[in-house]
């Protein structure tokens, strides 16, 4: 296919899509007033709900179903896969790691993103400064894995051999001896988490910075006139004003963290006690050929997200009550 043909096909796709949306809007527009709300809502939601049911709900339900079957997906084995997850000592480590990831990553990424957003807000070169933190988000996974190799790589202390990992070079400069960062349990988990924080802080910073800019200036001015200092401003003005955005960021990064597996996979392969549920799910499904256990691990991911969902429901209720 020639490049022109490719772009033409893309044009058709967009046209078809625009036509579909046009029809929806046309239909929706025929209903008005409070009574038509239901009809308009259905029209607005229909395309979304259709593609989601086919693309995510159906595979999700299928996964739940498969989780009660054996490796080949033939024999029904009840909850055996789940009991494997909760009894096998390796799998317990996996669970523990996942919890650690989810407890650390969202808060650090959000905290750093928020701090940076406040610090560079209205500063000179603000867009440039923000682009620097945003950069990691734009890097493909292949790129990120090499980047961190040049940070964590280990070379022994031996004449004629130079460090190629920055972290060990710093340690050597400080007079220490190089460490196997990715090997030493349990700290190796932290070194992996750092990579995720590095990537996600850019997301937090972008969203939060925009939220900060939406804080009404009169509120800030009033607080300033009341003699509120920097910390007070942060605590009593900034954070309450951007609370909804904070919830969004924490939730999004939390879910992304639960699902993360490529960092673990490319850097340690899940070895040395660093595996997480999403990585284990991937290994079991696509490498160990254990469809049932893989499905059960995916279901476990669904379950782990429940606290995050509940928290969001509470926030939703709170905002309705405003």
């Amino acid at each position: 296919m020639s490049n022109t043909a490719k772009f033409l096909e893309m044009g058709y796709a967009i046209l078809i899509f625009v036509a579909i949306v046009g029809v929806i809007l046309f239909i929706a527009n025929r209903f008005s007033g409070r009574k038509g709300d239901r009809a308009v809502a259905s029209a607005f939601l229909a395309p979304t709900l259709i593609v989601l049911s086919v693309g995510l709900v159906y595979p999700g339900l299928r996964t739940v179903y498969e989780s009660f079957f054996d490796a080949a997906g033939k024999a029904f084995i009840g909850l055996d896969n789940y009991s494997t997850i909760f009894t096998d000592s390796d799998e317990i480590t996996v669970l523990r790691n996942t919890v650690v990831w989810v407890l650390i990553t969202p808060f650090f990424a959000t905290g750093i993103g928020l701090l940076y957003a406040i610090l560079v807000d209205k500063a000179r070169l603000e867009s440039f400064a923000k682009a620097l933190i945003f950069l990691p988000m734009a890097i493909s996974f292949v790129g990120a894995s090499i980047i961190w190799k040049f940070i964590y790589e280990y070379r022994p202390e031996q004449s004629g051999i130079k460090q190629i990992g920055l972290l060990n070079q710093v340690v050597v400069w400080l007079g220490g001896s190089p460490q196997q960062w990715l090997l030493n349990k349990p700290w190796n988990n932290v070194f992996l988490i750092v990579i995720m924080i590095w990537i996600q802080a850019g997301f937090a910073m972008t969203v939060l910075s925009a939220a900060i800019k939406a804080i009404p200036e009169d509120i800030v001015e009033a607080a300033r006139l009341d003699g509120v200092k920097a910390w007070g401003m942060f605590r009593f003005v900034t954070v309450p004003s951007i609370r909804p955005a904070l919830v969004v960021v924490l939730t999004t990064i939390g879910i992304a963290t639960l699902k993360v597996f490529d960092i673990v996979r490319t850097v340690t392969g899940g070895q040395f006690g660093t595996s997480v549920v999403a990585n284990e799910f991937y290994s079991q499904s696509f490498r160990a050929d254990n469809q049932g256990l893989g499905a059960a691990l995916a279901v476990l991911l669904f379950l782990l997200v429940i606290p995050i969902v509940l928290y969001n429901i509470r926030q939703l209720r709170a905002s309705e009550g405003r």
Binding site: T48, L49, L52, V54, G55, L56, V57, Y58, P59, G60, R62, T63, T252, I255, L258, K259, A278, F281, Y282, S285, F286, A295, A298, L301, F302, L304, V305, V309, N312, I313, L316
Partner: peptide, 18 residues
């Protein structure tokens, strides 16, 4: 909430059915 919770479904489980 149901739609938002769908975020957690790993893309990998959808590959074969889709």
């Amino acid at each position: 909430v149901a739609v938002f919770a769908l975020q957690i479904i790993p893309i990998q489980v959808t590959l074969i059915p889709l």
